[in-house]
């Protein structure tokens, strides 16, 4: 469970996240929507202590993330835009192993986790392939596997579909469906609700760093104007 309490984050004088209190349950699929500069990316980077609050607190399973960054980062996995810039190794398997290696796990455990993570994104048995030679969709899935190998309860994806072609979108979405079915909590940050809305249990809308919308998808769709996001039904 991820909880923020009166979270504030400032860049200079401007508050990018302004007094946000949210609770995200285990297994919940949440879409965080908002326009450019609404603060959605800044907000989620607090979930695993990539940023430090100016005031307020963030906890994962009751533990303060600033004091327990390793706990936060292993339980809340984060996948960023631009998968190409997230890889640390040249081959798929070596890259996916990076997270578990940092956790100091035994080699057999690491090998098993890498195999499971690759299977979870439909890349089983492709550990020896060179990342540079994969398609965009495959790279996006390997980036997800690299985070899954740390066995997180929640997976936060920042604009996971931006820049992907139709086929790659479909393949990433199919993986997300499977993860959600397997009980992983999903937090998808997006400015574009197409394909996301029918999968979400809940939609949180941000504008100017504040939560202006937090509801089930049905009612939320009628109020998308508040967050300056296009209605995907149009």
């Amino acid at each position: 469970m991820i909880e923020t309490d009166s979270l504030v984050h400032r860049y200079g004088d401007a508050a990018a996240v302004d007094d946000v209190s949210l609770t995200l349950e285990d297994g919940e699929a949440v879409a965080i929507v908002g326009g450019n500069g609404s603060g959605k990316t800044t907000l989620v980077r607090h979930f695993n202590a990539l940023l430090e609050p100016d005031s307020g607190t963030v906890t994962v399973d009751g533990r303060d993330v600033t004091e327990h960054p390793v706990y936060a980062r292993t339980h809340v996995g984060m996948v960023f835009q631009h998968p190409r810039d997230q890889f640390v190794a040249g081959t798929v398997g070596a890259d996916v192993a990076f997270g578990p290696e940092n956790l100091g796990l035994d080699r057999e455990v690491i090998d098993r986790r890498v195999a499971e993570a690759l299977a979870a994104v439909d890349m089983a048995g492709r550990g020896d392939e060179r990342i540079d030679r994969l398609s965009g969709g495959e790279q996006a899935r390997v980036a997800i596997a690299g985070v899954l190998a740390m066995d997180p309860d929640h997976l936060v994806l920042d604009e996971p579909l931006t820049g992907l072609d139709r086929g790659a979108r479909e393949s990433v979405l199919a993986q997300l469906d499977e993860l959600a079915a397997g009980g992983t909590g999903l937090v998808v940050v997006t400015h574009d609700l197409r394909d996301v809305v029918e999968r979400a249990d809940r939609i949180v809308g941000l504008a100017d760093g504040r939560v202006v919308l937090d509801d089930d998808p049905g009612p939320a769709l009628d109020r998308l104007d508040d967050v300056g996001v296009r209605d995907p039904r149009c």
């Binding site: 390793v70 292993t74 339980h75 940092n102 100091g104 066995d151």
Partner: peptide
């Protein structure tokens, strides 16, 4: 499962 990984030196 709640692994703590307390030995990890970030």
């Amino acid at each position: 499962m709640t692994e703590e990984y307390e030995s990890v030196d970030l």
